[in-house]
Amino acid sequence: MARVLINIPREIRAGETIAIRTLIQHAMESGYRPGADGNVVPRDILRRFTARFDDEVVFAAEFSPAIAANPFLSFTMNVVAGGTLTLRWEGDNGFDQTETRRITVA
């Protein structure tokens, strides 16, 4: 399991648009970098990020190798009521990781 940091505002009012910030540990090996032996290191990157709130996709992104190692991503979402935020990262070599966070509104 890759380490993940998910930053969600502590207090959320109903109807508010909040910013969510995420970091995930991943080398994002570009597939263009020569290794110690001089051969190009094969590509191994995250390809797709999906954020769902309950069952609705609120944000998604497709990455190319130009996304930096240990990808950082911030996006916003309008919160009408409490629910479950599900974040999923998918990538090369079968990488697939899902994290969930409860979101409550004041």
């Binding site: 998604a60 992104a61 990455f63 190319s64 190798p65 996304i67 930096a68 916003t76």
Partner: peptide
Amino acid sequence: QPHVITAHYSARSGQALLATHIR
């Protein structure tokens, strides 16, 4: 490669904002 990232939004996004770190 010419492509860096594509992000997808809906009305639920509240704002059309993208922040990331690139190479």
